[in-house]
Every structure is written in structure tokens, then in C-alpha cells.
Nucleic acid binder design. Sequence first.
DNA 1: CAGGATCCATCAAGATACTG
DNA 2: CAGTATCTTGATGGATCCTG
Lengths: 123, 123
Amino acid sequence: MYYVNGKEYICSVSIVQDIFNDKWKLGIIWHLLEGEKRYKELFEEVSEITQKTLTIKLRDLEEKHLIKRVVFPEIPPKVVYSLTPIGEKLRPVLKEMFEWGILYVKECGEVTKMNACEVKFSN
Amino acid sequence: MYYVNGKEYICSVSIVQDIFNDKWKLGIIWHLLEGEKRYKELFEEVSEITQKTLTIKLRDLEEKHLIKRVVFPEIPPKVVYSLTPIGEKLRPVLKEMFEWGILYVKECGEVTKMNACEVKFSN
DNA sequence: CAGGATCCATCAAGATACTG
DNA sequence: CAGTATCTTGATGGATCCTG
């Protein structure tokens, strides 16, 4: 039994389940795997997300210690988001998801357009 | 660009995201990693799920070719669910989630009660 | 630039009862 | 045993406008 973020979990997988039972957070992490990003960059890269939702998700990820938020006291404002060490450790998880997704498409779907989908796992 | 289950995805991770953006499906897969299960077994093992929700999720997973449903024409009825080959290939994904969850607890949470959480990855 | 504030629509999911 | 059928609710996310 685990206790984290004010909740109890019977299995460590359910922690991951709970954190990422969400339409956006995985995508945000995905883009942050490339390196730190400004708010605006994330807003543009995480396709279709609204500002309100992005803000909420960033706050939530920060609260759960998966990302770090650094504010530069400038005008205009500059805020940079990056993965924490534990957030960075999600890379292998995303990698497995990425690879399974490709297997799944091969079996049950199709590639409709080639795009050099960012390879974040070359290392 | 990928096309699967009537939708387009820009990245294979978003396929996984889409399938498992859900409170229950990961847990169902998790229990099926142990082997085939009857409806009732899943109902008991996936803690807190209702019958209605379980049925919906099983149907959805079946439609997406992640699980197989076999009906035995008996009275009383017997229905057995199991992972398809592509469903079985989710094992490494779940494994990474499992392991990351443990790291996460070490860093940000605590183990409140020891329980020999099913180790499905001993192989 | 990086958000905050509102209002609103949707839908997943819970509760409960019923059935071939 | 393995589901269905309704009804209800709460949270997520969308749309739009505002601001230090």
C-alpha cells in the first residue's frame, strides 16, 4: 500500500494511472522530454490545448513534483518549465508507450502520412 | 500520422494516451496479465468497479483488439476474458509504469502497508 | 507573455434495480 | 453468472474575455 499526494494506492501502477488519467499531461511530459520549454512553446506544441487547461495541468504536474517552474522577473514575463529528476525518469515509460503504439498501429491501424515523429529515445 | 480505430493520431504515444485516458482499463489489463479471467473474477479483483462500468470497459477493450472474449454456452453462463497478442505486448509498458510508480513513491510518498504487490514481471 | 476569471457543455462514472 | 436499464452527479475540458 502506498500513500502519495494525499491518496492511497494498492499498486504502484495505479499511481501512474491516476496521474495520467487525463487528456493532456502525458503530452506535456512528452514535449518536456525534449528539454525545458516556455509556456508559449508548450501552448503551441501541445496541439489543441487551451491556455486555461494548460495552466491547470502545469500547476498539477508541478504540485506532483513532475515538473519545475521557473519564473524570470522580466517584462514581458518569462516562465520556463522543465522536468524534475523523477519526471525525467518517466522517459522509459513513454518510450514503451511509444513503441507499443507503433506495434498497435501495425496490427490494427495504418500509417496515413509519414512524419518523422520526434525520436526522444535515441539515447 | 497514424490512423486507427477511426481516429487520427500525430504520435504513437497519443494512441496509448487515448486508450488509457480512463480510470479502469489499465487495471483490467493489469489483472489480465495474470491470465484469463471470468467476468466475476475481474469484477472482484478490479476494486470498486461497478458491473456496468466493467462491462463497458471490457467491450471497449475488445473492440480495440486488446482483449478477447469467449462465451461458453452453459447454464449458468461462463465468459472468459484474455489478452490478445497485442494486448499481451502491453506487459513491458505496465512494467515500466509499475517501476516508475515505485520510484515515485520513494521520492514523494510513503509505503503505508507492505503487501506483496503481485509481481507480474518476474519473467 | 503568461496567465486569471467565468460560464457552459459533455461525459465518464456511481448508485441502484432488474434479467435471460 | 454475466450482464442491462435508468437515473444522477461531479469533474474535465471548451469558449471567451480580461490583465499585471
